[in-house]
Nucleic acid binder design. Structure first.
Length: 477
DNA sequence: GGTAGACCTTG
DNA sequence: AAGGTCTAC
């Protein structure tokens, strides 16, 4: 079974981010940098390098019964290689749809950056954040499970749901892969109890009731709520209505219909609209987005003091008028930037430099050199781990101006020398500054759970480290 | 129209 | 505590 590829820069699609950022919950790591999922009746495996996305697919054994075949098998397929060729091509078409490769992310990022300074500041570290075109039912189930929950457990719940009620598609190694069960597979009254036993908690009732409500509707009811510009895979797009600041008619209609389901409120409905129904203007406002709105966009004062229904609409509408038609896409970039896993990742390279510096520090004890740098105190009133990473980037951005302020005695002027070591100094200094920031900026939780960030004095810490390192450098010669 | 609890588990 | 929803003041 061979790999095929699609040419796409990692800045246009970063699967390591997109597949783990919480819009889909069924992709699993199946290798060092591989992700696999039983989807659309087959197991698809993905990996990528900076310029290409690689994919392959495992299909279930051929079945003669047409009604159970999830993929139409062409009559002309005779040999095994003909069939594999067809399967791979069909898989590529599906992936282009599912991964939503049509929109140009670079252009969109540029537009949002122009409209929004905060976006311009944060987005560069989180490129390739693209909205998937997922199955609406799968999206609905995933986000019903998401309340007061985390990505890890949501994924685990989806896994159990599929393993217990979905069709087995195949194996990778000894790991079985199951596709999503249909709503009809969950209508048996025993399902609710069973789901509780499987650890779904109060969400078991929501899932069971929602499955029932959807089963009672006509086939395709959920998909009838889709954005006509983004139809089901294999169907043709039809022209969509005009954009209004609050969202198009079709979007509001879809949202209103979804909220009727059990366990589906405004937030879950917006997630389904955005990730599962192709409505780019849907902006889910969850606790994270609410934090962002308060921290970076001035919400939380005067009128919208807490996240009520009215506040929800105000925040979502604000982002729609700020970012435009694909506001939900921009929202997801900032959301990802705020997720702990990714914010920490952004700071990972800083941790590396700490190890390097530690080995240098151990060798020095001298204190004779003096260094003065510009008085620079960076203050953040509040902030979480993500804010922390951005704080670091702030400091890195100021590196050059700080460097200009650094003067050192004695005699040797490493920075201005033309030696290779001298040039190295700038790079090392940059690392030190970011490392210092990472070291000093400690987050603390207060009694009420609020995260506060301490004041940072870059100067004191940085001076100390630079002095020590230079001392050490000299000792080596 | 906003606030307070309850709802279930598990990382 | 964790990506909410529902119900009753």
């Amino acid at each position: 079974m061979s790999w095929r590829s699609i040419d796409i820069p990692i800045t246009e699609l970063c699967i390591d981010t997109v597949l783990r950022s919480g819009q889909s919950f069924r992709w699993k790591r199946s290798g060092p940098l591989e992700y696999s999922c039983a989807i659309h009746g087959r197991i698809i495996t993905l990996k990528q390098d900076p310029t290409k996305l690689y994919y392959r697919a495992i299909f279930p054994p051929a079945v003669n019964n047409e009604s159970t075949a999830s993929v139409p098998i062409p009559l002309i397929s005779r040999t095994a290689s003909d069939l594999e060729e067809f399967e791979l091509q069909e898989t590529q078409r599906f992936l282009r749809h599912y991964l939503n490769l049509e929109p140009n992310l670079g252009e969109l990022y540029a537009q949002w950056s122009e409209k929004d300074k905060n976006f311009a500041k944060k987005a560069p570290k989180f490129h390739g954040v693209r909205i998937l075109k997922q199955d609406a039912w799968e999206t609905l189930v995933g986000f019903i499970c998401s309340s007061c929950n985390n990505i890890k457990r949501i994924s685990q719940m989806m896994d159990k749901l599929c393993a217990n009620y979905g069709p087995l598609i195949g194996h990778i190694g000894d790991v079985p892969y199951y596709d999503m069960p249909s709503p009809a597979a969950l209508v048996n009254p025993r399902v609710e109890t069973h789901l509780r036993e499987l650890g779904f908690g109060y969400r078991a009732a929501y899932l069971f009731q929602t499955a029932q409500m959807i089963s009672r509707e006509e086939d395709g009811w959920l998909d009838s709520l889709r954005n006509p510009e983004n139809p089901v895979f294999g169907h043709k797009a039809s022209p969509a209505g005009q954009m209004l600041p609050e969202g198009r008619e079709g979007y509001r209609n879809a949202h209103a219909a979804l909220v009727e389901l059990q366990g589906v409120g405004a937030k879950v409905a917006d997630c389904v609209c955005l990730f599962g129904l192709g409505w780019g203007e849907a902006v889910p406002v969850d606790t994270h987005v609410w934090q962002i709105a308060q921290r970076d966009y001035g919400f939380g004062r005067g009128k919208h003091k807490s996240l009520t229904k009215a506040t929800y609409d105000a925040v979502a509408n604000y982002f729609r008028q700020l970012w435009g038609k694909e506001a939900g896409w921009a929202h997801s970039v900032l959301f990802t930037a705020d997720l702990k896993t990714f914010a920490e990742k952004a700071a990972a390279n800083i941790v590396k430099s700490e190890e390097i510096l530690d080995s240098v520090k151990a060798e020095t004890n001298d204190n004779t050199a003096t260094v003065s740098i510009k008085e620079e105190t960076i203050v953040h009133d509040n902030g979480n781990a993500d804010n922390f990473a951005l704080g670091v980037s702030d400091i890195i951005a100021r590196t050059s101006s700080i460097q200009d302020e650094i003067k050192h005695e004695p005699e040797e002027d490493i920075m201005n020398s033309n030696t290779a070591e001298g040039k190295d100094e700038n790079a090392v200094l940059k690392r030190e500054i970011s490392e210092v920031a990472a070291h000093i900026m400690s987050n603390k939780r207060t009694a009420n759970g609020h995260v506060k960030q301490e004041r940072i004095d870059v100067k004191t810490e940085l001076v100390e480290r630079v002095v020590k390192r230079r001392r050490s450098d000299r000792l080596r010669r």
